[in-house]
Simulated scan of single mutants.
Amino acid sequence: MKYGRNLEARPASSQKRKLKTKPLLLLIAILFAFNVLWFIGWLIPDADKKPKQTGEEVASVAGEPITREQWMTAMEAEIGRETLLELVNGKVMEAAAKQYAIDVSDQEIDLEVALIRSVDGRSYTGLDIEKMRQKIRSNLILEKVLTKDIVVEDDAIDEHYEENTSLYNISTAYRTAIIVVATKDEAEQAVDELSKGSSFDVLAKERSTDLASASLGGDIGYINMSTDAIDKNIVEVAIDMKPDSTSEVVALSDGTYAIIHVSEVVEGQTFKLDDVKDHIKRELALEQLPQSVSPEAFWDDFDAKWFYGK
């Protein structure tokens, strides 16, 4: 009897196990189906992510299409070579820094930025501060590589500083952009559009008659009270402006009119000999080189190749 009772109990236990197994099997089936669907979705790219066809129309004139391929070809012809050259040279200089264990600190870049603002504020027009700093970094690496074995006496450094103290006494600089137009009415219209939210950059490109700055969104770089390459009326107005502010109409000496935007104000500072000693040493060392050297001179050293060949 005891044996029989055990035989009768076994089907009931098996049934309970089956009941408990069903939810688990259902869960496994759901997870399997989800994984299959995910895998299929991963294999089939989203339509929005498909690369644009070169024949895609990006504009048209009188029904005549301008294709993406035409657009990209024109941009490459205009700025492609210079942009790629800058990228390659930047990579080459970083490789040189690693090869020769050369370090460039943020403080060194800060000094160069300050000196550029003081001496030639238009050197990096059209560049934001980060791109400007990156170009300065690459240039510093190049200079350090070229001068690493050149000896410059301390007396020469001291003498240079004493003779050029004014270069290291830097005035407050104003990052400035302008829109120049022929008439006062045009200038007032531009001011009105700016007050309603129009982009200064866009208006400069569309309206400004100063072609050199118009292509850069009006940017004329850093100016200060001693800047003499810019209309004095622009300088006088700009040095009284606050960061991220736009002027009213300004009459220029040649009879045209301008609107001025100051995006940044960098306070002046004075650098002592210890602050600029390495900079002066590098400048004097560069003067001893027989000729100027560009980053391209190092391309073979670091196996640099590019689309345009030699």
Rank of each mutant, 00 (worst) to 15 (best):
K2I: 03
A9M: 15
S14G: 08
K20G: 09
T21H: 13
L24G: 06
L26C: 07
I28V: 07
N35A: 01
F39A: 01
W42E: 00
P45Q: 04
K50D: 02
K50I: 05
P51R: 07
Q53A: 14
E57R: 14
E57F: 04
A59C: 02
A59M: 01
A62Q: 11
A62G: 05
E64A: 08
E69L: 15
T73L: 14
E76T: 11
E78C: 09
L84R: 08
L85Y: 04
L85N: 11
L85G: 09
G90P: 00
M93H: 08
A95D: 13
K98H: 07
I102M: 11
I109Y: 04
V113K: 09
I116H: 12
R117M: 04
R117A: 01
V119Q: 13
D120W: 08
G121Q: 02
L127M: 15
D128I: 12
D128E: 11
I136A: 05
R137S: 07
I141T: 10
D149G: 07
D154S: 11
D154F: 01
E163Y: 08
T165I: 10
L167S: 07
Y174F: 15
V180L: 05
K184G: 00
A187D: 07
A190T: 15
D192N: 13
G197Q: 08
F200H: 00
V202D: 11
L203C: 07
A204T: 03
K205Q: 04
E206I: 13
E206G: 06
R207C: 06
A212M: 04
A212Y: 10
A212N: 06
A214P: 02
G217D: 01
Y222S: 09
Y222Q: 07
Y222W: 12
I223Q: 03
S226A: 11
T227E: 06
I230E: 01
D231K: 09
E236Y: 11
V237N: 09
D240Y: 09
K242S: 14
P243H: 10
P243K: 03
D244A: 01
S247E: 09
T256M: 03
Y257M: 03
V266Y: 05
G268W: 04
D275E: 05
H279K: 01
E296G: 08
E296L: 10
F298E: 04
W299M: 02
D300K: 14
D303I: 06
G309E: 11
G309I: 08
